[in-house]
Design a protein around this nucleic acid. Structure first.
Length: 572
RNA sequence: GCGCCCAUAGUUCAAUGGAUAGAAUAAAAGCUUGCGGAGCUUUUGAUAGAGGUUCGAAUCCUCUUGGGCGCACCA
């Protein structure tokens, strides 16, 4: 249990006591929702609760009086294990009626002693749950662009946060290997074999819109692809798909993602179609113009969408219904998370409501996360027009910058290559994960990827430096120990105790940026500590303690960075 | 036209209805005996506008302005 939960429990217990019971008579359930937070200002204690303010509002009483009562009740509690150990050094009432809890130094030290590689692991409600996460989802025959990079960074991080918390996570990549976009790309390739698949797609897409004749041609081609009736087309299709997937594999390797299941749109259509046919009988779906089958979202405050088109083919919406069942068949999950760009937020609302009618059980387990779009300063990216930033070329570009930085170091070529890759990927992932998921990133190469301050390399650097300190300690044969403790502990020790609850918060809110923020502050705190203290020092009796503290820092940083999908380095 | 989302230092981002709105970057000034300067310390600087609800609003409601996305057979 985290300290935050512990304090919450202590407060709840106090509220149940006789004296308080009388004082808080007539409260509604909603009133019991209060928070325990780490305040920004350390003068307000290590943890602070607004419980008295919330209750006072409900009761129409003075919040400070309520706070006094709660404080008294808490101080009366003797049977809580941590209270026996003097969890609190002081409880104060401040401001309009906040109750501020000051945690005893001894507690932080004890916590520090317990930090090992399992610190913070497998805590919280996700433990043992089966979670399936669907992300990245690039389309074969099209480019892997920075939007996919974004989905990948977020999906991978969420996967790892859940895994760290003890969930059994399966990663899914759902890929559109059929549909008009494929026909456009193949058409483009047929016109000019020299084009890359991305270029072929852009050419096909442009021609499709500009020329009605070509449009018909491409639609015909799409049918051939669908029923595999043309040998030459099949050959091109198979080769193109293989090439795309091979290319994607290389990128996943670099990014550090291993998918458990690859599911293709060509598999989901039939399953989806059957669901719609059954749903039509059950009046979930209805017929619309030109023989299409639609779902009337208006009944649920949403909009209408087509599930089967006039050609009798399942649309993306029908396929998604099929996809959910296929996923469940592969892995009977407790929760299914789908990470995509937020441009499809409205679409997903309709799709999930429709699923609620056809398969309520799965719909309730499904959670869509719409992340912000990576936008260019001059407007939207579009692979149709070829105005995209290709994922791989971005990584390469950043790698070049890192190479420039390490050029003159005394490192082997192999080491330099490893550093470039890890630092580049770390920088990119950090810049994606540092902000809350929903908001867009305006992509500007010079500003978006940073190596200083608030950045991936800053965290990697802090870790590497700490590791280097530990290596020195080993050489000088000073071992970590808690025998000799400093008179007073600082912010660094305290921050380390927050780690488990931050992981918890990130998982609960589907927000890796809480973790990014925390790690950045922790690194900053460590760096300040580092310049103020000589850690490895034979003549300093506190050196063993400082080394222990440094070691704890590296453990938290390593696990934290792992959850962000950022690799650590011994040298950089 | 309708619906959803957004607007915070020059810039990029934080802030479950809470206390003095935090960082980073840019700008300016500093850190030579030390363990890695991709670092550390200090200074300047912001809630789009107008109302409302509340003990308390960047956060909730209404309107205005300015953006993004979606709205029947693309994904």
């Amino acid at each position: 249990m985290t300290i935050k939960e512990e304090i919450k429990k202590i407060i709840e217990k106090a509220l149940g006591r006789s004296l308080m019971g009388e004082a808080i008579k007539g409260l509604t359930k909603e009133a019991a929702v209060f928070s325990v937070e780490v305040p920004d200002d350390k003068n307000y204690g290590d943890y602070s609760s607004n419980v008295a303010l919330v209750l006072a509002k409900q009761l129409g009483k003075n919040p400070r009086e309520i706070a006094e009562l709660i404080k008294k009740e808490i101080e009366k509690q003797k049977n809580i294990a941590t209270l026996k150990n003097n969890l609190f050094s002081k409880i104060e009432i401040a401001g309009p009626g906040f109750i501020n809890f000051f945690i005893a130094d001894k507690f932080f030290i004890d916590n520090l002693k317990n930090i090992d590689k399992n610190y913070g692991k497998a805590e919280g409600p996700e433990r043992g749950r089966r979670i399936i996460i669907d992300y990245t989802d690039p389309n074969p025959f099209k480019e892997f662009h920075i939007g996919h990079l974004m989905s990948n960074a977020i999906g991978e991080s969420l996967s790892r946060i859940y895994e760290f918390q003890g969930a059994k996570v399966k990663r899914v990549c759902y890929q559109g290997d059929v549909g008009i976009h494929v026909a456009k790309a193949i058409w483009g390739k047929m016109q000019n074999k020299g084009l890359s698949w991305g270029q072929a797609y852009a050419f096909g897409a442009k021609s499709y819109e500009e020329n009605d004749g070509i449009k018909k041609e491409i639609i015909e081609l799409n049918k051939k692809i669908y029923n595999r009736s043309d040998k030459n087309v099949n050959k091109l299709y198979d080769a193109g798909k293989k090439e795309s997937l091979k290319h994607f594999d290389k990128i996943y390797k670099k990014l550090g993602t291993k998918f458990d299941y690859f599911i293709f749109e060509s598999e989901t259509g039939e399953v989806g179609k059957k669901i719609i046919e059954k749903g039509l009988k059950d009046k979930v779906f209805e017929k619309g113009e030109n023989g299409v089958i639609i779902f009337k979202g208006e009944k649920f405050g949403l909009h209408t969408r087509v599930f089967i088109n006039s050609g009798g083919l399942p649309t993306y919406e029908a396929k998604d219904l099929g996809l959910a069942e296929i996923k469940y068949k592969k892995y009977a999950y407790d929760k299914s998370v789908i990470v995509t760009g937020n441009e499809v937020n409205e679409y997903f609302k309709v799709m999930i409501v429709a699923m609620g009618q056809t398969n309520k059980k799965l719909a309730e387990k499904t959670k869509h996360i719409g992340h912000g779009m990576l936008r260019l300063p001059e407007g939207k990216m579009s692979s149709r027009t070829g105005k995209v930033i290709i994922g791989e070329s971005l990584i390469e570009k950043v790698e070049k910058l890192v190479e420039e930085k390490v050029k003159n170091r005394e490192l082997s070529g192999k080491e330099k290559a490893e550093i470039s890759e890890k630092v580049a990927v770390g920088a990119i992932k950090y810049s994606i994960l540092k902000q809350s998921i929903g908001s867009d990133i305006i992509y500007d190469f010079d500003k978006s990827i940073s190596f200083e301050g608030d950045s991936g390399p800053y965290l990697q650097y802090s870790y590497t430096r700490a590791e280097s300190v530990l290596r020195k300690a080993k050489v000088e044969k000073i071992k970590e120990s808690f025998k000799k403790l400093p008179a007073e502990i600082g912010q660094l020790e305290k921050m380390m105790s927050y780690f488990p609850e931050i992981v918890f918060k990130a998982a609960e809110n589907y927000e890796p940026h809480f973790l990014v923020l925390y790690l950045t502050e922790l690194a900053s705190e460590f760096n300040s500590y580092y310049v103020k203290n000589k850690i490895v020092d034979k003549n300093d009796e506190f050196s063993p303690y400082k080394i222990a503290l440094t070691e704890a820092f590296t453990i938290i940083m390593k696990n934290g960075l792992w959850m962000l999908g950022i690799k650590t380095l011994e040298k950089m």
